[in-house]
């Protein structure tokens, strides 16, 4: 179509579309852009009376400070990784078989069990935390990473069960049946046919669960103290105690959001399924 043939209305419409799109993208991106650039700006550029939109002078000083200087968040990163990996690992270990059973096997009151698992994810975890803390102290764990990991299972297990169940539901039954007619028992059919085919789904579920565990703030707020603090706790603690070191804050935020953003983009095709516990297929 030639431009000359377009009606004025169509031209305005197209123009408007670009403007709306541009504004929406700015709205979505600017906070991230601003924080990322702040992490690389010099103190002068950050505190100057005119904001620097495109930093010309780039410094890694803030990253040095948070990794080896006065703040040192390395231990906190390690804590976060430990808790998330453990909670996701256990979640996969116990959640994937449960997902398979719920999807394929003749489990009595299957629907009710499924809904119950879903509802455990809906309940605000703080309400559950009050009595759990009592248990942890009684068990001698108290505040710390073990208690936090156990509590994070509340995040990872239902998530993994429902996401993986969705992926298994999508697989035709006849694949396992064929394998079982062809000489496998159910476990062997699972290993040779089902697992290889749902592996991407399991990976997606693991990544999503990792992100939710990594991002969690409120459980760690009470359950961790001092050196057991996870990254979100450490980052938030750096604010407000005395005058805020904005550059360090920007650097810490950058480090915090990097894993979830990278993982999410890796599983972008499964993101909707993951975020909705399998209710929406991407």
């Amino acid at each position: 179509m030639r431009v000359a043939n377009r009606s004025p209305r169509a031209v305005i419409g197209t123009g408007l579309k670009y403007v709306v799109g541009f504004l929406a993208c700015v709205w979505m991106l600017f906070p991230i852009y601003w924080t990322l650039t702040t992490a690389f700006k010099t103190r002068e550029a950050i505190l100057g009376s005119t904001p620097v939109f495109v930093p010309t002078l780039i410094t890694f000083e803030h990253f040095r400070t948070i990794f080896s200087g006065s703040v040192d968040i390395q231990a906190n990163i390690l804590n976060s990784v430990l808790v998330a990996v453990a909670a996701v690992g256990i979640g996969i270990l116990i959640g994937v078989p449960a997902a398979y059973a719920l999807s394929r096997m003749d489990v009595p009151r299957k629907g009710d069990i499924g809904f119950w698992i879903l509802s455990t994810r809906m309940a605000p975890p703080l309400a559950i935390l009050i009595p759990l803390v009592g248990f942890y102290f009684a068990a001698g764990i108290g505040q710390g990473l073990i208690g936090l990991t156990v509590t994070h299972l509340l995040i990872t297990v239902p998530l993994i069960i429902w996401i993986v169940k969705g992926f298994i539901d999508d697989l035709p039954d006849s694949l396992e049946e064929s394998a079982m007619v062809d000489g496998c028992n159910r476990l062997q059919a699972l290993r040779t046919v089902v697992f290889p085919l749902v592996a991407p789904g399991v990976a997606a579920a693991a990544f999503i669960a990792f992100i939710f565990s990594w991002n969690n703030y409120v459980l760690a707020l009470y359950l961790t103290t001092g050196e057991s603090a996870t990254l979100p706790i450490a980052v938030s603690n750096s604010v407000g105690t005395y005058s805020i070191q904005w550059g360090q804050l920007g650097a810490a935020v950058t480090v915090t959001i990097l894993p979830p953003v990278v993982l999410s983009l890796l599983i972008r095709n499964y993101l909707v399924a993951g975020m909705t516990m399998g209710a929406v297929k991407g």
Binding site: P172, S178, A179, M180, V181, D182, N185
Partner: peptide, 30 residues
């Protein structure tokens, strides 16, 4: 698996992650 039968399914139930050779040989293997 112990009935020594072979079944052809409506949707063929070919294992998508295996080659045709592996698909056909699957039953013999197990």
């Amino acid at each position: 698996r112990d009935r020594d039968i072979a079944m052809v399914f409506q949707n063929y139930a070919l294992y998508p992650h295996m080659t045709i050779r592996e698909n056909i040989g699957f039953g013999l293997r197990y």
